[in-house]
Amino acid sequence: MAEEWNPKIIAIICNWCSYAGADLAGGARMQYPPDIRAVRVMCTGRIDPLFIMKAFQDGADGVLISGCHFGDCHYLEGNYKAAKRMFLVKNILKNIGFDDKRIRMTFVSASEGAKWAGVVEDVVRTVKELGPSPLKQFEK
C-alpha cells in the first residue's frame, strides 16, 4: 500500500501571494506532484482554526496553509494573525498525539513560483513519509 497510496492534502492559500505564486509556477511549467487541492481565500487571516480541525476530522493526511511574507500582507497583518493561530492548532494537535508535521504554514509571494513548487514537493514528501492520517482508522 505504501507504494500506491496517494495522500489527501488540502491547501488553503491566500489570493494575493501564494495563489498568485502557484499560478506563476504553472505559467513557468514547473512540475510538482498532483496530491494537493487548493482552496482559495482572500487572506490567510480568514482561516478559522476550525477549518483545519475539520479537514483532519474529514480524514485529511496533511494541511498546508500558505500566505504572504511577513510585512507583505495585502491586508497589512492577516498573515501574522494566521501564523499565531497556527501555534494554537499545532499545540492542540500535539496534545492529542497527532504529528504536527501534518500541518504546515509557509510564506510564498506572488513572484515565487519556484518556491511554491518546492513547498508542494516537500509537503507531499513529508506527508507520504508520515503515512495515512491516524484518524482514518476511526472512520465508519
Binding site: G26, P33, P34
Partner: peptide
C-alpha cells in the same frame, strides 16, 4: 490549468 495541467504535464491520470 495554472495549478493543474501545466504543473502535471506528464501525469494524465493524476
Amino acid at each position: 490549468r495554472e495549478q493543474n495541467s501545466w504543473v502535471h504535464m506528464h501525469d494524465r491520470e493524476g
